[in-house]
Design a protein around this nucleic acid. Structure first.
Lengths: 114, 114
DNA sequence: ATCGGTTATCGCAGATGTACGATATATTCT
DNA sequence: AGAATATATCGTACATCTGCGATAACCGAT
């Protein structure tokens, strides 16, 4: 199927894209690891995860494609780090999406809907 | 492939699951529609989206499986509404995940990482 | 130039997601 | 009962994701 993502408002499409990047525990773990280590570590990420090197590389590629992570070639090894700006933008985007929804909801009850 | 989601901390797995539910523009649009209409509308969601009825029903099912939406059968039509508690929990979960990452980052610069 | 270590990419396989038409189901109305 | 409407599910087709081994590409050191 062709991705019908262009039939939706571009902001929704973008947000969905970013959410999809968070949609796998390995990628969440990668982000945590990169952030914990202060800056960018390379293949140590592989050691942190219960996945093969090839698989981790793919997840890193996905995060890079989503813009959440930047990678630089540093000699024989590669160097990844969280893109703070992008991560902040993502947090803002999610907040900007979710907050109005929560506001629009009945303030107190969560019991019945109909 | 078996989903290796059980090789990761359960909180990461749960958050990834929720993020995946937001990982499609149609589902974001559905959430918006349901929230806008105050409470629960049924097949009006189908009219709002550029998708076939069967496809919308599937997305609704996915949102229901993720716990973000509740559905009740109301006579000949079905009635969906956003689960405010679950949505708040999701917002908190995302915030709780992203905030520490942002804190751990170098506060100002977003230039280089290595 | 070659070796050794690190990372990216390829190719494959199985699973899951996306979308739709067709069909089943359920409920109201006549 | 039967028709009409609304929704869910089934079956299908294709796309994408996930994971891994194997291999290529790259770079520093010997």
């Amino acid at each position: 199927m062709q991705a019908k993502t262009d039939l939706f408002p571009p902001d929704l499409a973008r947000l969905a894209e970013a959410a999809k990047a968070l949609g796998h525990p390995a990628r969440l773990a990668i982000l945590q690891t990169l952030a914990e280590r202060g800056a960018c570590v390379c293949g140590e990420v592989v050691d942190e995860l219960p996945l093969a090197q090839a698989t981790v590389s793919q997840h890193l590629k996905a995060l890079k494609a989503a813009g959440l992570v930047r990678g630089e070639v540093d000699g024989p090894r590669s160097c990844y780090c969280v893109d703070g700006t992008a991560l902040r933008a993502l947090a803002d985007g999610l907040g900007g999406f979710l907050a109005p929804l929560l506001d629009a909801l009945p303030p107190d009850d969560d019991a019945d809907c109909c």
